[in-house]
């Protein structure tokens, strides 16, 4: 085991340097993702800059109690004439009084998607593919025929004798009479009537009927709100496609809207979560709340099972006193907003 003399020190230096380099390499090696992906800014996707809202535009403040729906999956919200709050989800409808106190719960045979409270207190509930009608006490009056496998009812509204249902699966609005007879298809592509057909890329497709009997339908693929007569004539539309605060941005917005007592609109958006007010002509008025106020502002959800990941966007309703009720499904809460300066 005799060492070799010539050039021994060179070998020693090289080996020592190599050991040093090896140790340094091991220490520098990040196997756990601690240092991040190391991708340049061009790979970043950040909407937080766009989500910022000028505080001067915010016209509303949160008021009243935060109402917990007590559900695992809240889906839709509606108000009746007395200001009671109805929430659909978890195979039930839960009713809260105006102060947010839980009043009662109506069990349903299936998962409700949307609901509307008629003036006479009847409940129209859109299940996935059909409508259930309940009386004010919660007794089932009727269960209408199924609209087919592909149907997905996302919004329902009643006006007098007419019941209007938004079917996101078939991308069409259906008009029923109070007995459940299908009267008309509204919004079908029709070149003669200048109707382009709804563009509904995702299961968000809302409608509402104003007091004067005009039907408003959100066309989320075009980022606008259309106005139809109940006969199905497209009258006019409004809505600007923009990331700016005045417009609707990204895919499938507005996801939900409601009519205010003064004829204006309150709209809810996903992606960049924000709730905004427009007047009856569609001119931007102001902001109710931005993404920082909702749990839905979380960018991506991580779930154990796919159904837990089903993103359900905000739903809005307006009270007769002008208050705005926002259902936040990821959080299973209802937030109530009132105009700044208005009495509590």
């Amino acid at each position: 085991m005799s060492g070799r003399a010539g050039g021994g020190w060179i070998v020693a230096v090289l080996v020592a340097a190599a050991i040093g380099a090896a140790v340094a390499a091991v220490l520098r090696l990040d196997t756990t993702g601690r240092t991040g992906s190391g991708l340049s800014e061009a790979y970043e996707y950040d909407v937080s800059r766009l989500a910022k809202i000028d505080p001067n535009l915010v016209l509303y403040v949160e008021s009243g109690p935060l109402i917990h729906t007590g559900m695992n999956q809240s889906r839709s919200i509606a108000l009746d004439g007395a200001g009671r709050i109805y929430v659909a989800g978890d195979r039930a409808i839960r009713v809260f009084d105006a102060a947010g106190k839980a009043e009662r719960m109506i069990s349903l045979p299936g998962e409700p998607q949307c609901l509307d409270v008629a003036d006479d207190g009847r409940l129209f509930i859109g299940m996935k593919d059909h409508v259930e009608v309940l009386d004010a006490q919660g007794k089932t009056i009727a269960s209408w025929d199924s609209l087919g496998e592909e149907a997905l009812l996302t919004s329902i509204a009643s006006h007098g004798d007419a019941v209007l249902v938004a079917d996101a699966g078939h991308r069409i609005v259906l008009r029923f009479d109070a007995a459940g007879t299908l009267v008309d298809h509204i919004g079908e592509k029709d070149a003669d009537r200048d109707i382009p057909g709804f563009s509904v890329p995702s299961p968000h497709f809302d409608l509402a009927v104003s007091r004067d009997g005009l039907l408003r339908v959100a066309d989320p693929g075009r980022n606008r709100i259309d106005t139809f007569t109940l006969d199905g004539n497209l009258e006019f539309w409004w809505g600007e496609r923009s990331v700016g605060i005045k417009g609707f941005c990204g895919c499938c917005n507005p996801v939900s809207f409601a009519l205010l007592p003064d004829g204006g609109f309150v709209t809810a958006e996903k992606g960049l979560v924000r709730v905004k007010i427009y007047n009856s002509d569609g001119a931007f008025v102001g902001v109710v709340a931005g993404s920082d106020q909702f749990a839905g502002g979380k960018q991506i959800k991580v779930c154990e099972t796919p159904e837990e990941c089903q993103g359900i966007a905000l739903d809005v309703a307006a009270g007769p006193d002008g208050r705005i009720y926002v259902l936040d499904p990821p959080d299973n809460t209802i937030k109530v907003f009132r105009k700044k300066g208005a009495s509590t």
Partner: peptide
């Protein structure tokens, strides 16, 4: 897929136009 014209996976959040221009691609 929704086959959207305004595809948010393809276009940046503030696209100049809904086309294949490099300035609009995400």
């Amino acid at each position: 897929c929704g086959y959207c014209d305004l595809c948010t996976g393809y276009l940046i959040p503030e696209p100049k136009a809904l086309d294949t221009g490099a300035e609009n691609e995400l």
